[in-house]
Design a protein around this nucleic acid. Sequence first.
DNA 1: AGTGCCGGGCA
DNA 2: TGCCCGGCACT
Length: 514
Amino acid sequence: MHTSRRLVKRSILGSRVYAPSPTGDGAPVTGVVQAVKQENRDVEVRRNVYTVLMQDGSLKEFTEEEIAVAAKGPLKSSLKLSSSNGAVEGQKESSCLNPEAAEEQRPADGKRVSRDPETRSVSLLEQKRKVVSSSIDVPHTRRSEEEADMDKVTAAMVLTSLSTSPLVRSPPVKVNEGLSNSWKDNGPAVPFTPSSNSSSGGYWSWSAPSDQSNPSTPSPPLSADSFKPFRVPSLGGAGSGPTGPEDPSLDDQDGTSLLFDEPIPRKRKNSMKVMFKCLWKNCGKVLSTTAGIQRHIRTIHLGRSCDSDCSDGEEDFYYTEIKLNTDSVADGLSSLSPASPSVLSPPPPPPSPLPPLSQPPDSHRPPPPSNAKEPHVGGTTPLSRSAPSALYLIHTDHAYQATAPVSIPSSSSNSADSASTSFTPTNSSGFSISWQSPPVTFTGNTVSPSKSQGFGEQRSQTISVLSSPPRAASALSRKVRGEGKKCRKVYGMENRDMWCTACRWKKACQRFTD
DNA sequence: AGTGCCGGGCA
DNA sequence: TGCCCGGCACT
């Protein structure tokens, strides 16, 4: 309501209108509204004067009534979104606004935007503002009705909310309706095109986790009813042209949607697991359910203790959906750090920057999970903090081999060092893993000093590993895999009887020692 | 998947 | 102790 009102008010510029002929012959002429100014002729009656650029290039001023009469109806305004020159063909008054909108135009509305005459040259920026403001649902609750200088302030607010909100929102349905009515015949002048929209949205919003320039509770609580209409067209809405209103449902099912409706677990690919990652600054909480992540955000970050029913939906801004390949990453997540993907897990540790200590400067740069779909979060994300830790483990797993007395490859010296600092077994054989959550992660694929073992077996053995000196002797004694010929290769399986006994017994070959 | 071989079971 | 094999690491 209020939103549309404002849109109406602002959108008159650029409208093509009929105006009385300046020659007085009665033949209406067309012109484009260039500016609106408000005349306060007396205290009570305020009237708008429209500066219209006539076809002949002259500028004329008309009162609202004059234009309205000439146009056979009240001066209607809709979003006159036009290309750069503001020329709007074919939209004229045919842009049928609902009576309510028309009514908003009346002088009686004391809150009409006072348009400075200097704005008669409608700049590109102005046009863009209109585009933006028409595409974005700015909840009226955030805006004061007393805003006098609407254009700039509104635009600023819109931009601000856009840039800070992790969620790109779509224009409210009402706006779309208006648009579809007035623009349906107007292909090129689509309010927003896929490119423009996605670019703007992608550009501003989400660098969220990495870009922490908007640390303080960025995005406003938007009214819940504005959610659904909005979330949709942001991505696919424009692809099919000016069919904005129909898009929502379609886009909602878009698998690549960045939007998260409450019933998230809809269609999931077999091997994909959907998690929800907290986007709060320095928080990387990953939970498996929307309820969980919302609760986390609500309680931890928003400081609200109440239940979800008193939520205004603000939590939605602070988490994102990520898809994990359950074969690899998710498994690592769930098995290595069981605490994280759990709804019931306690709140994460107080937000803190990534511990530089635990991360060797150059030895590892965990590639983001290939299948993890994240909304262009640059660099290391909270997720990648946990998931790649599996890789980390795998790397360090080689450490024990490197710590053989013979030589220590420099590449692994880092982990060896960190091992000595973070965890110091009796003989520093590669107990290096020292990243964030100490005990739990440690149980993962830690170094098995003596011999390789099954995963579960390693887990069960963790205690003993911690409590007793690793069997370094046996670990180190494991022969480096011989590269030379072995009995099996030489004689083949069919001549097994020709193998040395060791080979026959699956022991280290004694015949072809390296 | 193939290979090397460690750890452990069994007689 | 000899023999065998499960299973892991590595290629």
